[in-house]
Structures are given as structure tokens and as C-alpha cells.
């Protein structure tokens, strides 16, 4: 464990807590994409399949349970909670996210480090996580009025993978043979997808005006 990875995990945890806080306290999920939340639930479900077979540390297992629990409970809130589900703007959240799942699955079947069931699903979760934010970014472009909590959620979510890239650089420099192109490229693509959001987020923060994404 290094400081970059810890910072990444804490940023990721913060993003999830910000979203849960928003949904649980104000009982609203306006501006949040259910499609992205469903993709993230699939990402965690396919990435943490080894939670029962391999144990690394209390921290590792605890964080996996938190990420699994929070992503599925967010999906539950947005789909079934009587108050929250009414605030979900399903007309705007129309990204066909299943069109992201299939290519990622095919890609994982083609490009992976080991052709085993767990490894292919783990690689699938990497590819899917890289694009999971797309429905949310599309929704933000459409709704344009981004409330602070949703903006912070996306910002933190984008930042965590950026810290992970620093973590991979650190591990490459300190651990011999630590080379994982698949993870690195997927992580880089994921962070780049946030690039324009980051740009407008900093602009709005610097000029102290409301975050507006260009149509």
C-alpha cells in the first residue's frame, strides 16, 4: 500500500459517501444517472468475485464490502424507494448502457492476462469501469444545472482513478516486473474521459460561478 493508492481509495470512498448522503438526506437523486450506478454495481460485482476466495487484508475486504453495499443500495434507492424514485429523471437518462457492457465483455474475452473465468470477469470490470461514467456525463450535459453534490460526486470519482495512475507509476518504479498494460490503459482512458468535466469544474470553481457544461 502506498500513499497514492490510499488517497485513491479514500477519494473513491468519499465519492460514494457524497452520493449516498445526497440521496439519503434530501431523498432526491435528481441529476444522478441510474445507468451509471447500475454499471458500477456490475463493475464491483465482477471485480470482487474473489472476496470469498482470497483474503488480502481487513482493509481490502472491508472496502470491497462498502463499495458493493453502497453501489447496490444506491441502485435500490433509485429504483424502488418510493420518494427517491420519483426524483429520477428517466427521460433524460437515456444512454443505452447495455451497449457498453457487451463490447467490454467481448474485449475482455479477447484481451486479458489469463484466460480463466475470474480473470476474464475481472478484466471485464476494468474495461466497464473505464466507460461507466459516460451515462452520467451525458446526463450532466443535458440537465446542465449541476447541483454541488452531483458535481462533487463526479469530481471525486474522476480523481480516484487519477491517484491510482500515480500509484501504478510508483509501483512500477519500486516493484520489479510490475507491468500491467491492460490496467494502465483502462485507467488512463477512464481518467481522460473526465478531462473536460475537470476543466469546466475548475473553471466554475475558479470564477466562483455555477458549474455549467456546454451543451
Amino acid at each position: 500500500m502506498n500513499i497514492f493508492r490510499l488517497a485513491g481509495d479514500m477519494t473513491h470512498l468519499a465519492s460514494v459517501l457524497v452520493l449516498l448522503l445526497k440521496i439519503h438526506t434530501i431523498k432526491s437523486c435528481a441529476g444522478v444517472s441510474l445507468k451509471t450506478q447500475e454499471l458500477y454495481a456490475i463493475v464491483f460485482a465482477t471485480r470482487y468475485l474473489d472476496i470469498f476466495t482470497s483474503f488480502y487484508s481487513i482493509y481490502n475486504t472491508l472496502m470491497k464490502l462498502i463499495f458493493l453495499g453502497s453501489s447496490f443500495s444506491i441502485v435500490w434507492y433509485m429504483r424502488y424507494h418510493k420518494t427517491v424514485r420519483r426524483t429520477y429523471d428517466r427521460e433524460q437518462d437515456t444512454f443505452r448502457h447495455w451497449f457498453l457492457v457487451l463490447p467490454c465483455l467481448l474485449l475482455a474475452l479477447l484481451i486479458h492476462e489469463k484466460f480463466t473465468f475470474l480473470e476474464v470477469l475481472w478484466t471485464f470490470s476494468l474495461y466497464l469501469e473505464a466507460v461507466a461514467i459516460l451515462p452520467q456525463l451525458v446526463l450532466l450535459q443535458r440537465t446542465r444545472n449541476i447541483d454541488n453534490l452531483t458535481g462533487q460526486y463526479v469530481f471525486l470519482l474522476g480523481g480516484y482513478r487519477g491517484f491510482y495512475i500515480l500509484n501504478w507509476i510508483y509501483r512500477y518504479l519500486t516493484e520489479p516486473h510490475f507491468v500491467h498494460w491492460i490496467t494502465w490503459i483502462a485507467g488512463l482512458v477512464q481518467t481522460l474521459l473526465y478531462a473536460d468535466f475537470f476543466y469546466y469544474y475548475f473553471q466554475s470553481w475558479k470564477n466562483n460561478k455555477k458549474l455549467q457544461l456546454p451543451a
Binding site: 481509495d9 474473489d50 488480502y56 470491497k64 491510482y164
Partner: peptide, 10 residues
């Protein structure tokens, strides 16, 4: 076992 080294990440 090197591959496992990545699996301890979240």
C-alpha cells in the same frame, strides 16, 4: 504470483 499483486488493489 506477480499477477496477484494487482489483485490486492480495489
Amino acid at each position: 504470483c506477480l499477477q496477484e499483486s494487482l489483485k490486492d488493489e480495489l
